[in-house]
């Protein structure tokens, strides 16, 4: 016997799906097709409407460009580190502040404030907060210690950017973990307490496993967000001395607009899309296999 989900789509279903399919074709399919054509063409702003197909030269140019690999490494490191830091801090705050938030829920609004600010504005804000002659942080460092610390110099720019990103997006991870923590049934906690589980054991063997799906999702979302970072980094340091703080998004933007290398920029974005798709497909397959094994 077939279940409703196994039956062939009805004509009404097809009809209702038409607007969505058309929308996807026009707004995603067409640009994707144009991008694919540009990625194998010699194209400039003068020849946007008449690109000349030249094969895979753009892909070769990207693949052999040390700046592309430098930007890829920056994006990977930045995405991974910020995701780990944000999730670790967010998890700690969600559990540590849980009793306080339960009693004073308005604190949530204050903790969420950094999320309300556009990343570009965060970059602009720190550009001046960290400026040696304008910013409060260097001012007090100079007043108290007589030292002028370089926050955005070549040796420290990466870590400063990591801290700035972490400060802005930790509240997002905190929000997810707070909701997940609150959703753990009280009976389970009480039962484990009655069984004599110490708080650390309860956290490790009961609460964290129950929060694991949320932790994985938060890590993934924050990694993707960190990997494709653009706004705050671009405003704070641009692509950095010698391209040291260029993320892949910045690399693509600069290749497209600043260098006018449209084919190369699009080829880089196609590579990025292909790698992202492969990673997500792999993760999806892994999750499906684990689900099937249970």
């Amino acid at each position: 016997m077939t279940t409703p989900s196994q039956r062939a789509p009805s004509s009404e279903f097809r009809l209702l799906a038409v607007p969505l399919v058309l929308f996807l074709l026009v707004f995603l399919g067409f640009p994707a097709l144009v991008n694919l054509v540009y990625s194998v063409s010699e194209v400039s702003f003068e020849t946007l409407r008449s690109p000349e197909i030249t094969g895979f030269a753009n892909f070769t140019a990207v693949w052999t460009d040390s700046s592309f690999w430098q930007a890829s490494w920056f994006s990977f490191r930045f995405g991974l580190l910020t995701a780990l830091l944000e999730c670790a801090l967010g998890l700690f705050l969600a559990i540590f502040l849980s009793p306080l938030i339960e009693k004073r829920s308005w604190l949530m609004a204050i903790l969420m404030l950094p999320l309300m600010v556009a990343p570009a504005l965060i970059g602009l804000m720190y550009r001046f907060v960290l400026h040696e002659f304008v910013g409060p942080v260097p001012y007090y460092l100079w007043t108290w210690f007589g030292a002028s610390f370089s926050f955005l110099g070549p040796a420290s720019a990466f870590w400063t950017l990591v801290v700035v990103e972490t400060l802005q997006w930790t509240p997002f991870a905190f929000l997810l973990f707070h909701m997940a923590y609150q959703a753990i049934p009280k009976e389970i906690i009480e039962a484990s307490a009655m069984d004599g589980a110490h708080y650390r054991h309860r956290l490790w063997y009961v609460e964290l496993p129950l929060m694991a799906p949320t932790i994985v999702v938060a890590l993934l979302i924050r990694f993707i967000d960190g990997f494709r970072v653009f706004d705050n980094v671009y405003v704070l340091t641009g692509s950095g001395a010698g391209g040291s703080t260029a993320s892949l998004s910045i690399y693509i933007y600069e290749a497209f607009f600043k260098q006018g290398a449209i084919g190369k920029a699009v080829a880089a974005s196609v590579i990025l899309f292909a790698v992202s798709f492969a990673v997500l497909y792999g993760l999806n397959a892994l999750a499906a296999r684990r689900k099937g094994a249970r």
Binding site: S148, F149, S150, L152, G153, P154
Partner: peptide, 8 residues
């Protein structure tokens, strides 16, 4: 002779 952050 110029601030260490001059590179930004």
């Amino acid at each position: 002779a110029t601030p260490r952050d001059s590179l930004s």
